[in-house]
Design a binder for these strands. Structure first.
Length: 95
DNA sequence: AGCCTTTGACCAGCG
DNA sequence: TCGCTGGTCAAAGGC
């Protein structure tokens, strides 16, 4: 699973037949954080169709970007999760 | 000892 | 009202 810089705790995993993909449910380890993360991927091509759906907003500061794509400070969004439900698509990334 | 991860079952909403 | 799907919680094992 891809590291986005935040800490998550997996609390479930189900196969969504509607889209024929695996969906993993993650939750922020912080109690003051109602942020959630859902990761979907193909059962046969996990690296070809990765999908990440962020739900909620983090109620704490930004953690040390562990896997920043361009270094610290350039994480895929600091705390803009307040937008509600961010939708990230590995093969369908807007902008 | 504490934390994390994984699987099954249960609950709620919709057709 | 029933069946199905999506989503969440709990318990056990390993490091």
């Amino acid at each position: 699973m891809p590291e986005d810089g935040y800490e998550w705790k997996k609390y479930g995993q189900k196969y969504i037949k509607n889209i024929q993909k695996i969906r993993s449910y993650f939750r922020c380890r912080h109690k003051l954080c109602g942020a959630k993360k859902k990761v979907e991927w193909h059962p046969s091509d996990p690296s070809s169709d990765l999908r990440i759906v962020y739900d909620g907003a983090h109620q704490h500061g930004s953690p040390p970007a562990a896997a920043s794509p361009a270094g610290p400070g350039a994480a895929a969004g600091s705390n803009r999760y307040e937008l509600g439900a961010q939708y990230f698509g590995g093969g369908a990334r807007p902008q």
